[in-house]
Design a protein around this nucleic acid. Sequence first.
DNA 1: GTCTATAAAAGGATAGAC
DNA 2: GTCTATCCTTTTATAGAC
Lengths: 203, 203
Amino acid sequence: MSPRTEAANQQIRKERQRNILDAALKLFAIKGLSATKISDIAVEANLSYGLIYHYFNTKDQIFTELVKEAMKISINVFKQGSKLPVGPLEKIKIITEKIIDDGYSGRGVYYFLLMIEAANSDIVPAEVKKFRERRKGIYHRLLTPIIIEGQRIGEIIEEEPVRLATAYFALIKGLALLYPRINLAKELPTAEIVLNLFKKKRD
Amino acid sequence: MSPRTEAANQQIRKERQRNILDAALKLFAIKGLSATKISDIAVEANLSYGLIYHYFNTKDQIFTELVKEAMKISINVFKQGSKLPVGPLEKIKIITEKIIDDGYSGRGVYYFLLMIEAANSDIVPAEVKKFRERRKGIYHRLLTPIIIEGQRIGEIIEEEPVRLATAYFALIKGLALLYPRINLAKELPTAEIVLNLFKKKRD
DNA sequence: GTCTATAAAAGGATAGAC
DNA sequence: GTCTATCCTTTTATAGAC
């Protein structure tokens, strides 16, 4: 048997890191940072306990790494949506569908749940707090202009944009929370329902 | 100094229990069950570590006790609201205001955050899981009839009641989560905004 | 690169003094 | 009723063998 090449080793290292991150993501999202034990991650990833520490220094480091990934992805959903050549309501609809359909399925829902923990918890690593502070308000800054434009052209209800945005984010957060426990086929709100939050009512 | 009477002792015991429960409620709500240490509770309640165990057997017992309180209160908000002699939309508005204004301020917001942990986490005590199972779907059962009545009389949008209810609960849950971190005066959605979720829209 | 065994630390729970 | 000191389990983190 010939020895493994360095390239092959690098490939293995990359895979293991991803294995560990995926396992940790799922567990952090469901159980939270504190309740997730390194041993849980090892079991979930089908790796030995010790190997986790071969690839990462601490549990906090894994968590921080994942938060960075999650933020990057979710911010991108909003940025991409903002650029689309469609009306404001349609932009929000597409963003919402991306979150509900793509985002919330597969790995995506875990990213969102992780974000909730990262954004709201007091017990996250210091680096996550710094990161969170730097990006403070980014989601509002991305959504509010769309809302204001929608109000300008009469598509969106005349409520304070900031409060509207907060309601929207609350709804999305709440959906991510409920997601693992509801009957998706019967109970998951459609993007249409979510969008109704923004629409003008009949007089 | 005369010895304390039994009545006075009972009074003290009652107070201490409440002290401990209030401190634990706040911490469980903010940090979660796992991340809250008994020592944290002792500090928050200004009591010695050992005294916690004089009044409660385990951390789980404290958590379970609080979940029962929280469920009772939140279910009551819906039941009281349902009885009011007003229209469906107005009922939901009053319930929502009660949650946002009363409920979410003071001790109430902590109860709601605790409920989120209790309702969604996998790591809660077995007794909480049983409790949760027994009451499964109770909130839907309380809200859905109001929605259906609202649709019958044309006040509420013609979407599937279950999905509408889920969207509403998601929004409320998300608001509770955001509550501790937003500027209430500027960012908190009004009950009017929340209600807009249910209203019929222009075509 | 991967694993098992061990050390070190943290936290839950108890005992006993006041 | 309240506190401090101690025990013991759990979990993090490291060491060293394969």
